[in-house]
Design a protein around this nucleic acid. Structure first.
Lengths: 261, 261
DNA sequence: CGACGTTTTGAATTGGTTCAAACTAAGTGG
DNA sequence: CCACTTAGTTTGAACCAATTCAAAACGTCG
């Protein structure tokens, strides 16, 4: 994910701020927007050229600050981030996990003020596109609006699966669900394959995703390991028994994919 | 989700099938789409005229059947409905509550197949608009797409609040959250005022929303009553102490409202 | 009335939390 | 190169919020 191994969260920071390969961004956007719907190459090019140079956000910084009015949308190129909210009782709950290729705050285009902050879980690289520019591109191409709107719809489907997990599944099932979903989403953007992926999160963070205590996450991880469902060493996760995990979680990746049309 | 028999939930079914006041639909759509963004009167008129005559759906029937490809979007005029999913362990989890004025499956326009069914909690009246017609209207008016897309975004915000409640709040806090949210959403479409509203749901259904057991919902309802926060007789709910409830749930209705620009 | 769906109450059980401490691994600086 | 530090993982034991099972009390309607 982020830079080297060793410390999974840190990334070397040469003076390359502002330098980036436009191709990388273009490719990611293409994967993202054309996986489920077609968008013309011309629009994709115009879109990817409309982004500002990339920014580096160190782990634990906020990419989006709660309650602040946005004037541009942020696309995550690299790293993990998470939308969250803090409660009076001191608990933190994540409500959305952002992966490379995700628009961190696409909604801000229409809903300027975001109620929840988004924190970088690892060092992140992100590029922003001003609302005004995006708005113009949208007006010019009906396929683009639809593709972006569809992206919002898929986010909603992800949220509903999350509600399902939190409301009706046991700790073990939730963890299995989480691993399955993350793997599928990472694979979709080429960040995972062969049932292996980097998961640069602490167990405390996973607890804040699954609505569990850190201690219990640890116990459930141990259980999945013991049963041979996963191998998990540092940040590297290997889903040894995909079928078993998916069955346990009643996971079906259809909701992440393109309509079968 | 078998056919509705004659119980407290049923509504008299005169031969008025197919009869409806276009004004009622027009008014509801206007409230719905212009509350957060402006849409031209001409578009609103064309849109409301594009709907098919209304259908009556008896309580417990599915409005949307899981996995079936939709060719039109359904607007709920009257009654309560809920998106749900059944798990192998026999549990049912609701993942979205649809109220009058809500598009039950707006997403089907872009994502034809819905993974989750939607069941009528009460007798419902709904009108549908074929995808093709809606598509044409959307192409003709950029404000309309944005307004509908914004609606999807608000749905997403609602889902995230739900995740927050399920993941990080106690049973009592969750119930308080649920009452607050429902009241605000109903008030937005003129179905509630003065902290009173009709809540035509059983405690078992509320349990399936909050991820609790029926018994525990009952106990928590009793607690809120005892503390003088709510009065609740049959389907009629009165939030006696809005401030207290909102504080308990850490509820802030901003996420349901228009962006303050 | 009798019946059924719903709400309410009680008692036992459990999945997950909390608190506390030990253990591991990876920097940091002398 | 080793002691020191800090962040994260792991283990144990007591505890609690919510569940489960069971049965009683309502209410409404045919």
């Amino acid at each position: 994910m982020s830079g080297g191994d060793g410390n999974a969260r840190s990334v070397e920071r040469e003076g390359e701020e502002g330098m980036w390969s436009g191709d990388e961004l273009h490719d990611l956007i293409t994967i993202k927007l054309t996986r489920r719907r077609s968008v013309s190459p011309a629009t994709l090019r115009k879109l990817s050229e409309a982004f500002n140079p990339l920014a580096l956000i160190p782990a634990r910084d906020d990419l989006i600050v709660q309650g602040v009015k946005a004037s541009s949308c942020l696309l995550l190129l690299n790293g993990f981030a998470a939308r969250y909210r803090l409660l009076r009782n001191g608990r933190r709950q994540f409500t959305e996990i952002c992966l490379p290729g995700d628009f961190v705050n696409l909604g801000s285009l229409l809903k300027k003020r975001q109620r929840q902050g988004v924190v970088a879980l690892t060092d992140c690289r992100a590029a922003s596109i001003p609302h005004a520019r995006l708005d113009r591109l949208i007006d010019a191409d009906g396929d683009l609006v639809r593709s972006l709107w569809l992206d919002t719809l898929v986010d909603g489907a992800v949220s509903r699966e999350w509600i399902l997990a939190l409301g009706a599944q046991s700790a073990k099932e939730r963890l299995a669900w989480f691993l399955c979903e993350l793997y599928c989403r990472l694979e979709l953007v080429g960040r995972a394959k062969d049932c292996c992926f980097q998961l640069p999160m602490t167990q405390a963070e996973i607890a804040d995703i699954l609505g569990l205590s850190t201690v219990h996450v640890n116990r459930v991880v141990a259980e999945l390991r013991r049963e041979g469902l996963v191998e998990w060493k540092g940040a590297l996760v290997h889903l040894k028994d995909w079928g078993g995990l998916a069955a346990l979680a009643e996971f079906d990746k259809a909701y992440l994919e393109s309509p079968p049309e």
